[in-house]
């Protein structure tokens, strides 16, 4: 499949020319294929956020190039602006960007900046609200009257309404309770399966990524440490823990059980999968008895 975003030898340095100069990204090259759901994981300061801000042209690289569908996004102003619309970026705590009088108007902010016709804007707003599960009665409220979780969903809808080819979420579940986290993750997953667009999910949580992503990029100290499908990357336990990332607790439990001689598969990354594997095992055991 064709790469929708292609990053070549990307280097970014903060505060160039001052004593506090530091390298945030160090010669990063990677291809992101169309239609993939990619998890981007790494420690605080590993360069995750800096990398995703390069992908829609918010940050200009110190060295290297970002190609979107084969075009350099910094070749001219028009290309950069196009990248903004084709690569949607939803920041951490996106609810702090809400500003309009009503939720509907706020979701329409992106499409309106794209200079779309009015009826197209309206239909996109309705569609985006549907994806995030906002009801009709929410749409005419002030965004500041919504609950915390609703605010976040409204803000996510604001990015979805631009209908980008690539949608990037920078830690969309930060600061939410487990239930809120589940809601956001499943709506992101649903959106991806329904529209077939490319999604990049930045997260701290190996378990969250295992639950929704097909591929994983592991970043460490401004470099891409690993890039592959979930199973391959998560199998390399030693390498992950060497850079301070831990495989999900369930995975650990199951690999310990395997060591004890029970026959389990290696690829258990979420509690749900664990539950299925265990109940199957118990069924089998009952049958044998």
């Amino acid at each position: 499949m064709a790469a929708v975003i292609s990053v070549k030898n990307l280097t970014y340095e903060y505060n160039v020319g001052t004593p506090s100069c530091s390298v945030a990204l160090d010669n990063v090259s990677l291809d992101i294929e169309k239609g993939d759901f990619i998890g981007l994981i790494g420690h605080t300061g590993s360069g995750k956020s800096t990398l995703v801000q390069h992908l829609n042209g918010l940050i200009k690289p110190t060295k290297g190039t970002v190609y979107l569908n084969g075009n350099d996004i910094h070749s001219d102003k028009k290309a950069t602006r196009e990248a903004r619309f084709k690569v949607g970026l939803c920041f951490q705590y996106p609810e702090y960007q809400l500003f309009e009088e009503t939720v509907a108007k706020d979701i329409a902010f992106g499409p309106r900046n794209m200079k779309l016709p009015e009826n197209e804007i309206t239909s996109r707003v309705v569609k985006a609200a549907m994806y995030v599960g906002l009801k009709k009665e929410h749409m005419e409220k002030s965004p500041f009257d919504l609950s915390g979780g609703e605010k976040r969903r409204a803000a996510i809808a604001g990015v979805m309404a631009m209908e980008p080819e690539v949608l990037i979420f920078d830690e969309p579940t930060a600061g939410l309770d487990p239930k809120g986290r589940d809601v956001i993750l499943s709506l992101v997953k649903n959106y991806q399966t329904q529209t077939g667009c490319t999604v990049i999910l930045v997260s701290h949580s190996m378990e969250d990524i295992a639950r929704v992503a097909d591929k994983v990029i592991v970043m460490n100290k401004g470099r891409v440490e690993m890039y592959g499908d979930v199973k391959t990357v998560y199998a390399d336990c030693d390498r992950l823990s060497a850079i301070g990332l831990n495989v999900p607790q369930v995975t650990k439990v199951f690999s310990l059980l395997k060591e004890k001689g029970l026959e389990f598969s290696d690829d258990v990354y979420t509690v749900e999968q664990g539950f299925n594997v265990l109940s199957e095992y118990l069924k089998r055991r009952d049958l044998n008895d």
């Binding site: 801000q53 829609n56 918010l58 602006r81 903004r84 619309f85 949607g88 970026l89 939803c90 920041f91 996106p94 702090y96 960007q97 902010f109 992106g110 900046n113 794209m114 604001g158 990015v159 631009m162």
Partner: peptide, 13 residues
């Protein structure tokens, strides 16, 4: 800085 980046990502000019 953060807010203006977020709005730029939504196409604010």
């Amino acid at each position: 800085d953060r807010i203006s980046n977020a709005q730029k990502a939504r196409g604010a000019d």
